[in-house]
Each structure stands twice: as structure tokens, then as C-alpha cells.
């Protein structure tokens, strides 16, 4: 009992000593009043500490709130202070994103148009057309150009290549990929937007990408026919067009 009383008294004395030091340290009278209030509260808390223990309230956890409160106000002060640089970066990111979306849309439209054209011209049945756009900086303005077109033909059982037979005669056509690689605009270091698909890179090689196993090239006649259609319609260099067939089930001619 006496030991507990001694502890309590020692705490109170220590807090009061602390208060005296603080009063000495404070710079001016105006602040002194406010600091005195807080320190008085601390002394009160220390004097009340036996009661606090009795009531079993979680004092230390509550007081830890001081830190939380402080960092909260600090955070609130930072939020409205978004710098001009930050805003610019955000704007750039947004416009980049918008460009990407626009490029994606353009690619899709382009692919659809090419596929329609190829189907109408009665070339080999086309499974899918895959166009890759790339960006180039032309005097500060980023403009897209078609870097590659991959036309995937349907592998037909007994399909008659490019003779304009309706699809009726074609049993089943397998994916043919035409890769078109346009270098038209690409003199300068072109920043490549993400608009190109992963296959695009490898696709620049002569052989269609990674496809020794999966794809074979279509026969030169068909490829040339398709290539010329696309080249005429969209101004894509023929060397950038890749026509491919799924391997294994090569089209028989």
C-alpha cells in the first residue's frame, strides 16, 4: 500500500517538474497559457490515474490517439496542396490512357474493315485480321501508323484459295494471320504506345512470330493477293503484311 502510494506521488512530482521545465522553455506568454492548459490536463490525469485504473478504461490506447490525430491533420494539410507538377503528370497519364483507348478502337475498326474487304474481294477465307498500330512523333504530335497486319486464314479442308468461290464451298477455314509491317512514318525513334500486341515484336521477323510450330505461311499466291488488297486499300507496305495458316492442317490447294 505504501509502495503504491509512493509510486503515485513520484509520478505526480515528476509530471509537475516536467511542467516547470516546459514553462521555462516556452518562448512567449501567449503560448504559455495554452501549454499550461495541456500540462495541467496531464497533471490531472496523473492524479486521477488510480481512478482510471479502477475503472479499467483503456487510457493508453485513447491517448495514443494524439499521434493519430496529429498525423491526420498533417495529412489533411497535404491533400489540397497538390502541386502543379502533380496535376500535369496526372493530365499526361490521362491523355496517354485516352490515346491508348483511341488506338485500340482504331485498331479494331481497321481490322473489321480489312476483314470485310478481304471477304468481299473473295480472297481466301479469313479467320481474323490483326493490325498493330505504332506511334511516331512528328514534330511534337504523336501520330499513329500501321506497323503490321497479320491476316490469319482459315485452314480449309479442301478450300480453293483465292478464286472467289463463296464460302459455301469452303468447308472450314482456319486462322490465317497477315502481318503487315509499315515503316512508312517510322523514321524517328517512335515511342511505342502499348497499342501493339505482344505478338507484334516477334512478328517483324520474316517468319511469323513464334510460330514455327503453330503457324505456317500461306502459299505465295494467296499471300500476294491478300497483300495487294490490303496494300491498295490502306497504304500498307506489302512486306509488312503477313499471311499465315494454322500449322498441321495446311490448306490444300
Amino acid at each position: 500500500m505504501v509502495g503504491w502510494l509512493g509510486d503515485w506521488l513520484r509520478d505526480i512530482i515528476a509530471v509537475i517538474l516536467l511542467a516547470v521545465f516546459v514553462e521555462l522553455l516556452l518562448p512567449n506568454k501567449a503560448m504559455l497559457r495554452y501549454a499550461r492548459l495541456v500540462i495541467g490536463l496531464f497533471i490531472l490525469l496523473t492524479i486521477l490515474s488510480p481512478i482510471l485504473k479502477l475503472l479499467q478504461s483503456d487510457v493508453s490506447a485513447r491517448l495514443d490517439g494524439i499521434d493519430g490525430l496529429w498525423s491526420e491533420t498533417a495529412m489533411m494539410r497535404e491533400v489540397p496542396m497538390t502541386g502543379l507538377g502533380q496535376i500535369r503528370r496526372d493530365a499526361e497519364q490521362l491523355s496517354e490512357k485516352r490515346n491508348l483507348e483511341a488506338a485500340g478502337l482504331a485498331e479494331k475498326t481497321l481490322e473489321d474493315a480489312m476483314k470485310n474487304e478481304l471477304t468481299q474481294r473473295g480472297g481466301a477465307p479469313v479467320e481474323s485480321v490483326d493490325a498493330s498500330l505504332k506511334w511516331v512523333d512528328q514534330s511534337g504530335v504523336r501520330t499513329p501508323y500501321i506497323s503490321q497486319v497479320v491476316v490469319t486464314l482459315k485452314a480449309a479442308g479442301k478450300e480453293e484459295g483465292g478464286e472467289g468461290e463463296g464460302e459455301a464451298t469452303v468447308e472450314e477455314v482456319e486462322p490465317v494471320s497477315v502481318m503487315v509491317d509499315v515503316e512508312g512514318a517510322g523514321g524517328e525513334a517512335s515511342r511505342e504506345a502499348g497499342a501493339e500486341e505482344p505478338a507484334g515484336e516477334a512478328g517483324r521477323a520474316d517468319e511469323p512470330p513464334g510460330e514455327s510450330g503453330r503457324w505456317t505461311r500461306a502459299d505465295p499466291a494467296t499471300a500476294a493477293a491478300i497483300g495487294s488488297i490490303i496494300a491498295r486499300g490502306w497504304g500498307v507496305g506489302e512486306e509488312q503484311i503477313v499471311v499465315r495458316l494454322p500449322a498441321g492442317r495446311e490448306a490444300t490447294h
Binding site: M31, V38, L41, L52, R62, I66
Partner: peptide
């Protein structure tokens, strides 16, 4: 002064609760 008083808020609430 405001920031100093902000420090006092948790202490006051503990005392009041007690």
C-alpha cells in the same frame, strides 16, 4: 495555439469520460 489545443483533445475526452 489551435495545434496546441488539438493535442489536448484526447486528454480532455479521457478525463471527461472518467
Amino acid at each position: 495555439k489551435v495545434f496546441i489545443l488539438v493535442m489536448a483533445v484526447p486528454i480532455i475526452s479521457v478525463i471527461v469520460e472518467t
